[in-house]
Nucleic acid binder design. Structure first.
Length: 426
RNA sequence: GGAGAGGUGCCGGAGCCUGGUUGAUCGGGGCGCCCUGCUAAGGCGUUGUGGGCCGCAAGGUUCACCGUGGGUUCAAAUCCCACCCUCUCCGCCA
């Protein structure tokens, strides 16, 4: 969430940032107004409380001195003041709740250097790497759902039988490929990242901290009976690992990685890109995440991007890097790069990673702070994360890209050690 | 799931029964100063977070915080209720 003090002291700057994101500023104007009302009432309440506190101490003194008449008089007076105090407090509390709710809904401001734009179409292609998409052969122009069925490695019908459409079932070498990708990516990050295996179900508090709630509750699976949420990304548990804690600056940047299943209802995207593995309700993903100081954030962001990109390079896939424009940034992001791979069979660029910088927006929600070496004060950390990588679309692209004229599939040599030495699917 | 014990400041650990000058005793750690050729030991001091208001600032003042949220009371770390978490035992179980 935003720093309420910025809303108070530089409302025009905040408003300008939200405008760049294409967000209606009425909500933040309303917030400023409610906050002012809350402060006014809270100040009055505190004044009354101070009086009650003082008189209560007097009561104690008088009682010890044996002056019960004096004590009674003070108590009667305090009862009356207390009544007014309670009325004010109730009003002030209601306003405080409203402030909090508004803060949780108002998006993060974009970074100064995020490109301006209204939406997806204005994202900037920073670079295109790997093979030339136009140069793929005819044998590679077969969509992965066909390749998967031919080779018996992807069984969408039976996946649907079990759980409904968009719940894929991988089989045999296809299942093994998912496992290999996960193990390979985790091993690739092991040099600098601590591997975590977090829970896949989290409390409301946890999924609120990273920003998916309250605004996007419809996109997440909720187990009502236990009031737990199925994580849509490992970002959710990893962001809250340090919730409520004060980290030492010497430990920053703190780098974490985790492979988890990810669950998404895809409520708003029914019918879009639903073929095969393009959009699924459950998938595996390896996430990399860092807590950093504000000074480190930019470098760490570049590092995460380089990590995710490095994996795509090792797989030999055609990909491009997008600098996400202000209008396409998510609620929580200040700056974001997306990685898209080119899948020759579908003839589409598929988003397989999103590498984001959140400033202190998530850290404020999760209350993750660090003690600064310089002056020993505590301050909010910055959070950053990226997918490295999300497997279904990588799986699809590998299968399409690796398809040979005889219908078999050759996977990248880089994966050989994780595939038991055999990179051929037939 | 059942029974019991417990959650206090950076850490350990009092206070809770018997509500009141307790933001909280004491010990350890950290920090500063003194002592010292250096180190150890010792001495003295200091050491939470968040918000409001005043102030250019230093600072002053006030409110809140003893797992979380409610309640009782003039007054709650202390009493009552609910929830969360930890530990021990029992049950169940991959």
């Amino acid at each position: 969430m935003l720093d309420i003090r910025r809303v108070r002291t530089e409302l025009d700057v905040v408003r300008a940032g939200l405008v760049r994101k294409g967000v209606d500023t009425r909500e933040v104007d309303h917030l400023a107004e409610v906050d002012a009302r809350h402060r006014r009432l809270a100040a009055q309440r505190d004044t009354l409380r101070a009086q009650v506190n003082q008189v209560s101490k007097e009561v104690g003194r008088l009682r010890r001195a044996g002056d019960s008449a004096g004590a009674e008089a003070r108590m009667a007076w305090s009862r009356q003041v207390g009544e007014r105090e309670r009325a004010l407090a109730a009003e002030a509390d209601a306003l405080a709740v409203e402030v909090r709710e508004l803060l949780l809904r108002i998006p993060n401001l974009p970074a100064d250097d995020a490109p301006d734009g209204a939406g997806e179409a204005d994202n900037v292609v920073v670079r295109v790497e790997g093979p030339d998409p136009a140069a793929y052969g005819e044998h590679q122009r077969v969509p992965h759902w066909d390749v998967g069925a031919e080779l018996g490695i992807l069984d969408l019908e039976r996946g649907a039988k079990l759980s409904g459409s968009m719940f894929p079932l991988y089989r045999g070498a296809g299942a093994r490929l998912v496992r290999a990708l996960t193990a390979w990516a985790l091993d690739r990050h092991a040099d600098a990242f601590e591997e975590l295996r977090p829970p896949s179900l989290v409390r409301t508090e946890t999924i609120t901290a990273s920003g998916q709630l309250p605004k996007f509750a419809d996109d997440a699976y909720h187990l009502e009976r236990d009031d737990l949420w199925a994580i849509p990304t490992a970002e959710v548990p990893l962001t809250s690992v340090a919730a409520g804690e004060v980290l030492a600056e010497a430990d920053l940047p703190l780098r974490l990685t985790a492979a988890t299943p990810c669950f998404r209802r895809e409520a708003g995207s029914a019918g879009r890109d639903t073929r095969g593995l393009l959009r699924v309700h459950e998938f595996d993903k390896v996430e990399i995440l860092a807590y950093a100081t504000p000074e480190q954030a930019q470098d760490v962001h570049a590092e995460l991007l380089a990590r995710a990109e490095g994996l795509l390079g090792e797989l030999g896939l055609a990909y491009r890097v997008l600098d996400i424009c202000t209008g396409d940034l998510g609620q929580t992001q200040a700056r974001q790069f997306d990685l898209e791979v080119y899948a020759p069979g579908c003839d589409q660029w598929l988003e397989v990673s999103s590498v984001s910088w959140f400033g202190d927006y998530q850290a404020r929600r999760a209350d993750v702070r660090y003690r600064r070496r310089e002056d020993a004060r505590v301050a909010f950390v910055h959070t950053l994360n990226g997918s490295a990588l999300a497997w279904p679309r990588i799986w699809a692209t590998l299968v399409e890209t690796g398809r040979r004229p005889d219908g078999s599939v050759e996977l990248p040599q880089a994966l050989a050690p994780w595939l038991g030495g055999s990179t051929k699917l037939a």
